[in-house]
């Protein structure tokens, strides 16, 4: 069984909500990525989303855009990110979802990427600009080699598309809780519970909710209404602020641990 499915099964048995944390691989540099993943795991993160940086991240806000720029400038490449995953796997079995745009993968070779990423120890892949209808129309974009295809559902997604997306999704559904790009928000969008319920009409997969969550209170609020909470930009911003500091992992643990506890204690 895939590590993502195993993790959600364990969470279900324990009646707990999962915590998914996003960081951009290679930010501040590729050497620090395994250390940061270890810090996240130590903080209580259940699943790590690793962003493969792309020069034109049009679905991301300023924070992740800046992180992608830092990572590319520091020499992050697709194969470098796969090396970092191999390094992580020496000590950790935390589920890893790769999060990126199609072009870097397409130019690496779609089929080859899936084989290599899976062999390196990645578990899932979310390509922000590859909707399932487009994947289905291109035979060359159908390969998976054991990587679970994680799919997005947005507040603008009508029911008939939810069904289409759910059908091709594996692992979990990522519900983008608000219209817009990634980034922290003072107020979360309303109606998350009813949207999650709507999605569950079309799938038995767990539903993770993300986009804009940055505090323990917000995380707890979303945790009560979903199967997993995704936090990204808030962590990435702190990596940006403390990138050159010796104690970067400690700074990250300091920020992430209270969020993990809030999610674990939410009922």
């Amino acid at each position: 069984m895939n590590r993502i499915d195993e993790k959600f099964q364990a969470l279900r048995t324990a009646k707990k909500t999962g915590f998914i944390a996003y960081i951009t691989a290679g930010d501040p540099n590729l050497q620090s990525t395994p250390t940061l993943v270890a810090a996240l795991e130590k903080s209580g993160v259940d699943i790590v989303e690793l962003g493969i940086p792309f020069s034109d991240p049009l679905a991301d806000g300023a924070t992740i855009q800046a992180a992608s720029g830092r990572a590319i400038a520091a020499g992050a490449t697709v194969s470098g990110v796969l090396d970092a995953i191999r390094e992580i796997r020496k000590t950790s079995q935390i589920p890893i979802v790769l999060f990126t745009y199609l072009n870097p993968i397409y130019i690496y070779g779609f089929d080859r990427f899936h084989g290599d990423a899976s062999a390196a120890g990645a578990d899932g892949l979310l390509i922000l600009d590859l909707p399932p209808d487009e994947a289905a129309r291109n035979a060359e974009l159908m390969k998976s080699h054991g990587l679970l295809s994680i799919r997005l559902i947005a507040p603008t997604t009508p029911p008939e598309r939810m069904e289409l997306i759910a059908k091709s999704a594996k692992g979990f559904i990522y519900y983008v809780s608000r219209e817009g790009v990634t980034g922290e928000q003072a107020n979360l969008s309303v109606g998350i519970a009813s949207q999650v319920a709507e999605i569950k009409k079309y799938t038995t997969l767990p539903v993770a909710v993300g986009f804009g969550i940055s505090t323990p209170d917000q995380a707890a609020e979303v945790a009560r209404e979903s199967d997993a909470v995704v936090v990204g930009s808030a962590i990435v911003r702190r990596i940006g602020e403390h990138g050159s500091a010796q104690n970067l992992p400690e700074k990250i643990i300091e920020f992430v641990k209270p969020i993990a506890e809030a999610i674990r204690n939410a009922t």
Partner: peptide
């Protein structure tokens, strides 16, 4: 090839 938010 766009994010899901724009498909509709």
């Amino acid at each position: 090839f766009v994010p899901e938010t724009l498909m509709t």
